[in-house]
Amino acid sequence: MPRGYWAAGLALLAVAVVLGVAGGAVSLSPAAVLAALAGRGDAPTLAIVRDLRLPRVALAALVGVALGGSGAALQGVLRNAFAEPYLLGVSGGAAVGAVLAVAAGLTAPAVLPLAAFAGAIGAAALVLAVARAAGGGADVRLLVTAGVVVGAFANAGVMVALANAPADQVRGALWWMMGSVAGAGWRQVAWLAGYAALALGALVLWARDVDALALGEEPAAALGVDVERAARRVFVAASLLAAASVAAAGLVGFVGLVVPHLARAAGARSHRALVPAAALAGASLVVLADLAARTARAPLELPLGAVTALVGVPFFLARLRGARG
C-alpha cells in the first residue's frame, strides 16, 4: 500500500477525532474545548470534554479498529469479500455470551469480553459446522447463510432468556443489540485496547498464512501452510476482536465489511498491510458514525449500530451488484 494512503488514513482519523471531541449534543466553542483539554474551564465543560467525549471517541476508534481488523482477517481466511463478524453470526454469539454473563452477575470489564468471546467462538464453530454439514465449508454462500441463521438463532436465544427479565434488563439487552459507545469510560477503553492489541498483533503475525489461505486451501497447502490450524487460529483471533468490541459497545454491524474494501481500494494487498489498514479505516468510520449518532437528533441519540448499518447496507448491495456483474 502506497505510503501516501497511510498518511491520508492517519490524517482522516485525526480529523475524525478532532470532530468527535469538538462536536456533540452540546455545542461548545473550539476555544472552550481546547481550554478544557488543557484542564481549564468550568466543571461541566471539563466533565463534558474530558470525562464524556474523550473516552467516547477513544472507545469508538477502538471498536472500529477491532471490527476492521476482524473483517479483513475473516474475509481473507474465508476467501469471501462479504465476510464480517456481524453477518457471520460471530457478533451475535458474542452478544449472547455477554448478555448471559450480565444475567449471571459477571460484569467486570475484564471478564465481559471473555464471556462474549466464548459466545463468539461457539457461534463461529457452529457456523462452520453448519456450512460443512450442508456440503461445503469452502462455499462462501453457504457460510454466509449459516452465519445469518446462527445470528438469528442467537437473537432468539437472547429474546427467550429475557422473556421474564425485569424491564431494565430488557432495555439493556435491546440497547446492546443496537450498539452504542454512550457509556464509555477509560477502564473500558483500556481493556478493549489490550484485547485489540493482542488479537490484532496475532493477526499481523499470521498475516502470511492469511495471504496463503486467501489463495485457496490447495495452494495454501502447497505453500507449506497447515491449512486447518492456520485457519482456526486466525478465526479465533478475529472472533476475539469482534467479541471484545461487542463487550464494549454491543452489536455494531457492517464496519468489518466496509473497511477492508476501502483498504483494498487504497492498494493494500498483503494482509500484513490489509489488516492494519482496515483497522485504521475502521477507527475513522466508527468515530464519525458515533458523531452522527449523537448529533443527528440531539439530545436524543441514535443507536450506533443503526448508523453503521445505514452506511453499510447500501455498500453491501453495491458490492454485491459489482460482484455479480
Binding site: 465481559l112 430488557v170 432495555r171 439493556g172 440497547w175 477502564r187
Partner: peptide, 21 residues
C-alpha cells in the same frame, strides 16, 4: 411494554456494561 404504566420513557434505552466499577 413492560414499563408503560410506571416509566413513561421509551423502552429501548439502557445499559449492561456500566455495572463494572
Amino acid at each position: 411494554a413492560p414499563s408503560i404504566a410506571t416509566v413513561p420513557f421509551p423502552n429501548w434505552t439502557a445499559v449492561l456494561r456500566f455495572l463494572p466499577c
